[in-house]
Design a protein around this nucleic acid. Structure first.
Length: 465
RNA sequence: GGCGUCGUGGCCAAGUGGUAAGGCAAGGGUCUGCAAAACCCUCAUUCACGGGUUCAAAUCCCGUCGACGCCUCCA
């Protein structure tokens, strides 16, 4: 039985879908105006793993990830560049999709955009006004009235009185209550805008997700996800809007990932301690990023530094070792060791599932894979044939795939590979003549080129390191 | 100030009432011409600190200290 920690109840609960066999999952995507960073990668990877695991468990997952393509920051940046805001955001949408693909994140089944949801957003706002949960201000802004919602604050555990005490809140002139938030913003001169019953304007941040949720998944969904920095105000406001509009409970499980930590602080644009996904992938593989996430707890802060990344890289190499082929000269396993390998397959699957069922305990699932790799490597060392070892490796690959690990070796250009092979041939001749000096010289040369050699009875293998 | 999450070996961490998973690093060994990889062995009587509940606590309760996140845009 799968259990999921629910931010709304602050408890780990049994997972039950609204509709049998189907999971409706909405994950807040990004505002597209700049290169995405590894913090975004963490969030995308977390929900990719959740999605993959739910599919592994037999669910059909409707995975919606939105793009915020209408926003102050986009408008500002477009002005700086002298570019149309929607052209700019479209460019970054395509860019982000490529980043996710390079991280082996499965594309969401649907990726709605604010700019393409305008009629429904306006309808949504009108509905809230009719229900007296919102009001239009004289200047053309529309605000949600937090005092109209008895439940307001239930997700983040805040009370309106406490929040008013905060010194940072400024009372907007147009607002009836300081915590009221914008559903619709009147356009400033020259700004991109859409026609509405309240004049030209554009949506506030939170309403878009409520509207796109409704459009893509309906009034009620199973999982709503995002970074834990979105709990307040974004998700709090989404719940308020949607539940006032539909009169029904919105999302069954609220799932939030922790923040990636760089130098003891959250990685974020406002702090400026950013490493872009592209920059990361120019130095490390996507598996390393994913392993970093897998080795931690998705809800907890994730330490991102050279030490944790080096460990993640070694972890990936360790898993890859399980997939090395059997020795061509293998003589076969004795019955007892073969049955141990067969048993290890079942043990691995069981441990893996038990861990993942416990609120996606990926660290435990990876531990199961480490144990499994040990069994496979032991079998190979003991002379397992390809036929004997393949079923275990297939199972291993399947489980690693559920976590989204590719376990692919790096590739170089064919010219480089030809050079490497030529050098290895020369080295093999030297080794035959026991010319160890020349042999080691070549090995050092290859190391300079980024090639690691492994000699064995069956010959020399190599890989890019 | 308010709300929330959390403090487990050198590092990353699992474990939430029954006597400390896993990985990295480190040390020793097998294998190897030497390496690399793999495999074997060693590596926390102890879970921030102080009380309490219990036959039994890292796990529950209270307090203290500390870290991080949110309260403004944020994955």
């Amino acid at each position: 039985m799968l259990k999921i920690y629910n931010t709304l109840t602050r408890k780990t609960e049994e997972f039950q879908t609204l509709e049998p066999g189907v999971v409706k999952m909405y994950v807040c995507g990004v505002t597209v105006y700049n290169d995405a960073h590894v913090g975004h990668a963490m969030s995308a990877i977390v929900f990719d793993i959740i999605r993959r695991y739910l599919e592994y468990r037999g669910y059909s997952v409707k995975h919606v990830m939105n793009y915020t393509d209408v926003d102050d920051k986009i408008i500002n940046r477009a002005n700086q560049l002298g570019e149309d805001p929607l052209t700019l955001s479209q460019r970054y949408i395509e860019d982000y999709a490529r980043d996710l693909a390079s991280l082996n994140v499965l594309p969401a089944t649907s990726t709605p955009q604010v700019s393409k949801t305008m009629p429904l957003i306006i309808e949504f706002v009108q509905g809230l006004i009719q229900k007296e949960a919102a009001y239009a201000a004289p200047n053309g802004d529309v605000y949600f009235s937090v005092t109209s919602d008895d439940d307001y604050g239930k997700l983040s555990g805040r009370k309106l009185d406490d929040m008013q005490a905060g010194a940072r809140i400024e009372v907007g002139e147009q607002k009836e209550h300081p915590m009221d938030f914008a559903l619709w913003k009147a356009a400033k001169p020259g700004e991109i805008s859409w026609d509405s019953p309240w004049g030209k304007g554009r949506p506030g941040w939170h309403i878009e997700c409520s509207a796109m949720n409704l459009a893509e998944l309906g009034e009620q969904i199973d999982i709503h996800g995002g970074g834990n920095d979105l709990i307040f105000p974004h998700h709090e406001n989404e719940i308020a809007q949607t539940e006032c509009y539909t009169g029904k409970d919105f999302a069954r499980y609220w799932v939030h990932n922790g923040m990636l930590q760089l130098g003891g602080e959250k990685m974020s644009k406002s702090i400026g301690n950013i490493i872009s996904i592209k920059e990361f992938l120019s130095k490390r593989s996507s598996d390393v990023m994913r392993m970093l996430v897998l080795n931690g707890t998705y809800r907890a802060p994730l330490m991102f530094n050279d030490e944790t990344l080096d460990a993640a890289e070694r972890n990936v190499e360790r898993l890859k070792s399980a997939l090395k082929p059997a020795s061509p000269s293998a003589s076969g396993l004795p019955a007892d060791i073969l049955s141990a390998l067969t048993a290890a397959i079942e043990t691995a699957k069981t441990s893996f599932t038990e861990a993942m069922d416990n609120d996606f305990n990926t660290a435990g699932a990876v531990a199961a894979l480490f144990e499994f790799s040990k069994s496979i490597n032991t079998a190979r060392d003991n002379g397992a044939t390809a036929e004997q070892i393949t079923p275990a490796q297939d199972a291993f690959r399947e489980l690693a795939g559920v976590l989204g690990l590719t376990l692919e070796e790096k590739k170089g250009s064919s010219e480089d590979e030809a050079r490497v092979n030529a050098l290895i041939e020369e080295r093999n001749r030297a080794r035959k003549e026991k010319n160890w000096a020349r042999s080691d010289e070549i090995r050092d040369q290859l190391k300079e080129m980024g090639v690691t050699l492994e000699d064995s009875k069956d010959g020399t293998t190599w890989k890019w390191s």
